[in-house]
Design a protein around this nucleic acid. Structure first.
Length: 289
DNA sequence: CACTTGACCTGTCCGC
DNA sequence: TGCGGACAGGTCAAGT
């Protein structure tokens, strides 16, 4: 899915596009995508106004005037795209095809606002979900209780970062970076990019990583994810922002999906391996076991 | 326990 | 072209 920078980009887009709008109707084609019962939807969603949009880890939180919140996880292929009633980009505009064609066969939930604009939750693989719940209950959701700290917060220090890891752990550093209870928001793209930047092989065990290497990882994660947010995130396949636009960070990626190409640091050939059950991209010269 | 693998789904790509 | 299998940005339950 969308990892932290992509979800952050969607959050910012929704904050400028849907806050203040009043929801007049909701439709869903798939109970797993939106499991709430209709009486709850009618009472706390229909007629409510969007008061704000937040993000925690890779989860989006759309707050409503009823003191309920839409908790949304995009998982691998989820998209949240707003289409204004008057929005017409015109033929040839890069966003035109997606926006104009919504809703489509992967639209799982459609939110209609009272000005006849729409927010579409599209999700090809149906792993993602939308859940309506009281705002006060969000903190009691298992995932929200267990998830680690936000790595881009100003007050998140190197010391805090290192302390999140079990220094005796025999799991791989890549698995630890992907573990949302350790650090929030890192997924497959940014794990690979950060490990390359820090010159750490993803198969290295956590109990062999030095303080110096942890410091490099801390800096890499923050620098890379901040840059990605500037670039509107990474579009590897499906990801688009709240306006249906792709992100450009993949143009800046050093190893992810670049197997067969040259390492920009040393010129050796980037290879793709499997670590922690995931496709993993490394420079075998810069990153050694 | 700590750690790894399979399942959840649909679509695409690659080799035969 | 057609078909089977592997794989895809995440997370959890079930397995070892």
């Amino acid at each position: 899915m969308p990892e932290l920078p992509e979800v952050e980009t969607v959050k910012r887009g929704l904050n400028s596009l849907v806050v203040g709008r009043k929801i007049s109707a909701v439709d869903s084609d798939n109970p797993k995508s939106f499991p709430n019962k209709s009486d709850e939807i009618n009472q706390f969603l229909i007629g409510s106004k969007v008061t704000g949009v937040r993000r925690r880890a890779k989860v989006l939180l759309i707050d409503l005037s009823t003191n309920y919140t839409l908790m949304i996880h995009l998982k691998m292929t989820g998209q949240l795209v707003f289409v204004d009633k008057l929005s017409r980009f015109g033929a040839g505009h890069p966003n035109d095809s997606l926006v104009k064609s919504l809703p489509d066969k992967s639209t799982r939930v459609t939110f209609t606002f009272d000005d006849n604009s729409h927010l579409y939750f599209n999700d090809q693989r149906k792993f993602g979900w939308v859940k309506l719940m009281p705002t006060s209950e969000i903190q009691n959701v298992d995932f929200m209780k267990k998830v680690g700290p936000e790595p881009l917060e100003d007050n998140f220090t190197i010391v805090q970062f290192i302390n999140r890891f079990n220094r005796r752990s025999k799991t791989t550093i890549k698995a630890a970076l992907l573990d949302q209870t350790v650090i929030a928001g890192v997924g497959n793209i940014y794990a690979d990019e950060s490990l390359w930047a820090a010159k750490v092989h993803p198969s290295r065990l956590v109990n062999t990583i030095t303080d110096t290497e942890f410091k490099k990882l801390y800096k890499a994660i923050r620098q890379i994810m901040n840059l990605s947010i500037e670039k509107g995130g990474s579009t590897n396949r499906n990801y688009v922002n709240a306006e249906g636009k792709k992100g450009s960070y993949m143009d800046f990626a050093k190893v992810f999906r670049r197997e067969g190409l040259k390492c920009p640091r040393c010129g050796n050939t980037i290879v793709k391996i499997k670590v922690a059950g995931r496709g993993t991209h490394i420079c075998p010269h810069c990153q050694t076991i």
